[in-house]
Design a protein around this nucleic acid. Structure first.
Lengths: 335, 335
DNA sequence: CGCGATCCTGTAAGCGCTGTCAATTAAAAG
DNA sequence: CTTTTAATTGACAGCGCTTACAGGATCGCG
């Protein structure tokens, strides 16, 4: 059983005191003789010393990792989001630790205990389904810097960064409407989170603008994965729909599949549009028209807000709103 | 600035000693009066106490999280793998902590420091590009239980679990050959990791069996993402290939796209086969013929081997080999 | 040769928690 | 009413590390 070498071992080895070793290794204030410095470094190397993170964390330096909570890493949107966070956090010396719920509620409990346990220096919450619970429990006991990229709840502490969901929804529906589509199927989850409610309102707005009345019969509930989209299609083809709006690109890929199975062509028989503009959207055949979320900016701003909070800035409860745009590809065309 | 409430606060509140509180909260040996127990629980609740993980970790209970290192969470194969690990780890009270490299080498250094710092109770390494480095540095100083799901290097400590890459490669190529294809393009990364070398040997074996000589000119280097596949196609269409083998499903999706852009049909003009059988493979149009990795089993066995090691079983250096099978879908058909 | 300034290093005090073990008290037994 | 035995609880040490703060050299300069 290998024993972990501790700082005292290094001290003994070098004949210096623990303090000195610690100081040198942390590059702290007092300058030490070149000789000591070299000895310490050498010993660290030869002994293979690495500081115990628990001990160090206990003292006060709580480490440099920030938690990034996402609902599901199978969804490319969130995977990209994490990467975009890393892109700006890492250069700042902050290491994102991924907390993906993946459908396990035990995970949420566990995450909360971790956060409450002080393992993270800040939190980026991008998981509508859990944000609320996390915020409530965590912010009650700790004032951990937090940033949200969803609007799971309106009354939360911390900064939040969002897109204009309503406008986004409007753009999507308006695009289809402008192309002449009137019977538009909506593939949505059964329960609409706050942001989805906004988006939904955006659809309505577009309908109204074009003078078409919204038909609740055109709403097709679906899970948040391709299979949901695929199954929805089976019902959609029985209607007179000519266009399909999927809640996100992942679901849209299922819609593609469903349509394929029903021997329908895109965009000849059905126009389809997604949401998010994940990498895959560009690779689908035909390319998916979709509403592009500014993923990189989302990640970047989230980190920046977090850093601001960490450096003591008062919790201003900022809400930053990022612009969105519709990316037109081959999956839509005039009716 | 909210102050974190510590166990002493709870002790004061209840008038009991810190020890007692700790014992009760941890459900330890000695039985305590129902009264005390209640008081402690109540105080914990009202004060909102949650143990400091650093302090607890320092004492000896190093927490219950296991590290899962993957190269890239954008690749659905690894995302699924993580989920499959969670499925069996969580019920055992072990929480997988995801460490995804995502192309940031800083991450690897950071991860190593975490592991060396004792934050994890065990490691599941599924990142060929980093496993070697991690093992070397970590196992030199700590004997952390480790399990590999790749064969990045032959001489590593710890258990490993793999698929028969050679046979897998054979199945893929043999399938195409049996369908009558003779000119088969291979879309592979430039540098072949050990497992890919085996897979490659499997291709050769199949070629040999069917008496076709391997043409190095049919190898098209690609990155590990859809874009790589897409670009490879541009070159492939200039040859007389009739079939394409992609290194994985993700790349295959790029191949689909590339073919689409070149106005080629699948499987009429080109048969294509992938590797992994990620969820998406089923949703592509046409469905992708691919070699199914037993993802769930990989995850499950990895956890089981890890648990065995953690419970003190001698490091047996087991190597478990899992069966693979070819899943035929619409992307391949007789020439 | 003395005195402050300049360097370098060690002593000691915890951080919050758990485990060991002794101490206290209450209940049971003699 | 004293002695056992069991039921509860608390004192204390210490995990490995950092961080004041104090102490000892060394050096320059009057």
């Amino acid at each position: 059983m290998k024993k972990k070498v501790s700082i005292t071992d290094v001290a003994k080895e070098t004949g210096l005191s623990v303090t000195t070793v610690s100081q040198i290794l942390n590059g702290k204030g007092a300058r030490f003789s070149e000789a000591s410095r070299k000895r310490v470094l050498a010993a660290k190397e030869s002994l293979g010393y690495e500081p115990d993170l628990f001990a160090r964390g206990l003292v006060g330096k709580r480490g440099n990792s920030i938690g990034v909570v996402i609902p599901d890493m199978m969804n490319p949107f969130f995977a990209s989001f994490v990467v975009s966070v890393e892109k700006v956090a890492i250069p700042r010396g902050l290491f994102p630790q991924i907390f993906s719920i993946n459908g396990f509620h035990e995970n949420v409990d566990y995450f909360i205990r971790q956060f409450l346990g002080g393992t993270q220096r800040g939190l980026i919450l991008a998981a509508p389904e859990a944000s609320q619970e996390i915020v409530q429990k965590v912010s009650r006991q700790l004032n951990l810097p937090m940033v949200f990229t969803d609007q799971a709840t309106t009354l939360m502490t911390g900064d939040s960064i969002r897109i204009d969901e309503r406008h986004a929804g409007f753009l999507v529906a308006d695009h289809l409407l402008q192309l002449g589509h009137r019977r538009i199927a909506l593939v949505l989850p059964k329960r609409l989170t706050i942001n989805l409610q906004d988006r939904f309102a955006g659809y309505q707005e577009a309908f109204a603008k074009h003078g078409v009345t919204f038909d609740p019969g055109m709403v097709f509930p679906s899970s948040f994965d391709p299979e949901g989209g695929r199954q929805a299609v089976a019902r959609i083809v029985k209607t007179d729909a000519t266009a399909i709006i999927a809640i996100n690109d992942d679901v849209a890929s299922g819609v593609y599949r469903g349509l394929y199975e029903q021997h329908k062509r895109i965009p000849e028989d059905y126009a389809v549009v997604g949401f998010d503009d994940v990498t895959q959207a560009r690779f689908m055949t035909p390319g998916l028209t979709t509403l592009a979320q500014p993923i990189d900016q989302l990640g970047q701003q989230a980190v920046e807000l977090l850093v601001a909070q960490m450096s003591g800035e008062p919790n201003t409860r900022n809400t930053i709103e990022l612009p969105v745009k519709l990316v037109k590809r081959g999956s839509t065309r005039p009716i």
